[in-house]
Design a protein around this nucleic acid. Structure first.
Lengths: 230, 230
DNA sequence: AACCAATTTGGTGCGCCGCTCCAAATGTGT
DNA sequence: ACACATTTGGAGCGGCGCACCAAATTGGTT
């Protein structure tokens, strides 16, 4: 009777909650949001739907949990150098989110969905806290912290979601990328010049541009604008 | 034999494509994306699924068409005053998109989905052209037009998607709004202050802030940053 | 007015989905 | 060894998107 366990708790854990989430993310990465089905999960984990439900809840909850897992990992990114400026911090976390969405394209819609539906969930709050903490160090007066953080978060998540393509690292997916740019350029060229003068004016830039660089340029622009807040 | 019709074309059009799209938007507005089902459509229009398929294509195509319809309408917004600055133009179209998403919350995810999957569809191109056209008049050098337009579009769509709540006009939905802000503030207050110092620092602002004003502040910040491009 | 080919319609059924429910299996405390 | 709580696998239900098709409807031709 030496035990004072309020809860029995552990057992052999053949099927852990973590393993379900991990497998769910694999399925999502491989085939998009529609590939995450209860049946596919049960088959991969060789179990039944009841067990999955018991541990991970509904499909919607599972998607939220997967989102939370990926985002939390990205938010843990730290700048490489020793003395990091607030700009470094912001760039680092922004790029981490960029890469996370490049690797998990299903995040693009799921992230906005979670921000809209759960404005005080760990994802929303985590992103806000992580980025917002830097704006004070940027010299933004406290009265404008909320506005400044909102603007930064809106821009970063907007850019990151709209760039959800497969070009995270320079491993094997580069050819598709070139084809994709070529197709886009051709399509833009085919537009009626009198109706789309701007698209024609920039079509030359699309082939040579780099999404990641453009993203950093955008961040620099927003940071520049923030310094004028007073 | 006076007819030289290559196509018979018109007929009584009891069930027009427009009517399907219109009804689809009604269903989406009322119950979100999951409320748009073939069966619900057939019931409302008292027809069969074949007819809907014949005119509007798959459910996914119909969702894209609905998105296109709403976005195109928003992009047609023009500034009120006679002599409109490029800043006025940008603010006007940005607010039109803001209101469109406030009225049709399902747009938030559908819009990013369309931008990611169809980078040369009418929605993506339309938004880019409409906003991009203004950056030249802002004094941005042509070499930076693409970057400037990207940044603006990313910010505007990001902010707009993340604000997808029901507070478009001041008609009847205001009480929920106050409750919602109160709940958010309370939730933020409950966070551990040592882990979330920033959230605690700004929690006072949430009750008094206005989404639309904050959105305009963000646009001003980005526009400010754009003027430094050279 | 009668006919025809093309177009348009309503509806049935298939395969799949998320999810509920529950009997059996597996563990723990005494 | 026994009672009991936890955990599991799977069968079944209602609903979904969609392919498919026989019937109805059209406008043009004669």
């Amino acid at each position: 009777m030496a035990t004072r366990t309020g809860r029995p708790q552990r057992r052999n854990q053949v099927l852990s909650r973590e393993r379900i989430i991990e497998t769910a993310i694999e399925l999502l990465d491989a085939g998009g949001e529609s590939a995450l089905t209860t049946r596919a999960l049960t088959e991969r984990l060789s179990t039944g739907s009841g067990a999955i439900y018991y541990r991970a809840g509904s499909r919607d909850e599972l998607l939220d949990t997967a989102t939370e897992t990926v985002v939390t990992a990205a938010l843990a990114a730290k700048p490489a150098g020793a003395a990091a400026t607030p700009e470094d911090e912001i760039r680092t976390v922004a790029l981490a989110l960029f890469d996370a969405i490049a690797e998990h394209q299903w995040l693009a819609t799921r992230l906005t969905l979670q921000i809209v539906r759960k404005p005080f969930g760990p994802v929303t709050v985590g992103i806000f806290e992580r980025i917002g903490r830097q704006v004070g160090a940027l010299g933004v007066p406290q009265a404008s912290w909320f506005d400044a953080a909102s603007t930064l978060v809106h821009y970063i998540l907007g850019a990151v979601s709209q760039n959800a393509r497969i070009d995270g690292d320079t491993s094997t997916v580069q050819p598709d990328r070139a084809e994709f740019l070529e197709a886009t350029a051709t399509a833009w060229q085919a537009l009626a010049p009198e109706d789309y003068p701007f698209m024609h004016a920039i079509v030359g830039r699309i082939r040579e541009h780099d999404d990641r660089e453009q993203f950093l340029t955008g961040i620099a622009i927003v940071l520049d604008g923030l310094t004028r807040l007073g």
